[in-house]
Amino acid sequence: MADNKDVIAAIVGIEPGSALAEVVVGRADIMALTQQTHDGALTPVEPGGLSHAERAALACRIAKINDDKDFEEHFEALLDKAGASGATARIADIWFDGGSDARIKALIRHVDLVAHAPKDATRRDIELLQEAGLTDADIVRLSELVAFVSYQIRVAAGLRLMRGLA
């Protein structure tokens, strides 16, 4: 599992004293805020209607949709740590669509859509979440989770490419 003190640094493998570390330290404030947002999105003090286990499982899907094995492992470790039940852990299975559970089905459908093709999202997609019983506050929590993880995965993807620079 990636070190939760700085998930991106651990996943990218930013070695202390390396050329990349020297560049990143110039934006240390941004990297720290990124980590704090990670904690706020994945393990909030007040999770509302989205448990830590559900957040980790959904984040795992986002990592898979982005074809990012390192983040997949990181979120799997968070899922284990949250002590997820079998039903919740199953959300991380990319071939699982929620089955007969209308709420889980709506969560999965929305996360997959917004992670992969946000351009295709419409008012109807938010209505589907409301019809599945999500409160507006939980819809915002879910949206921040997908949006933030999509950001974090891209920052790491860019930094991995920078690691290859002389």
């Binding site: 560049v23 934006r27 949206s143 949006a147 920052v155």
Partner: peptide, 20 residues
Amino acid sequence: LDLILSSSLFGWANRLMHTL
């Protein structure tokens, strides 16, 4: 690095602004 950050940041912002 700043380009990676600004492009990625809008992967975040777009997923809120356009979907909510």
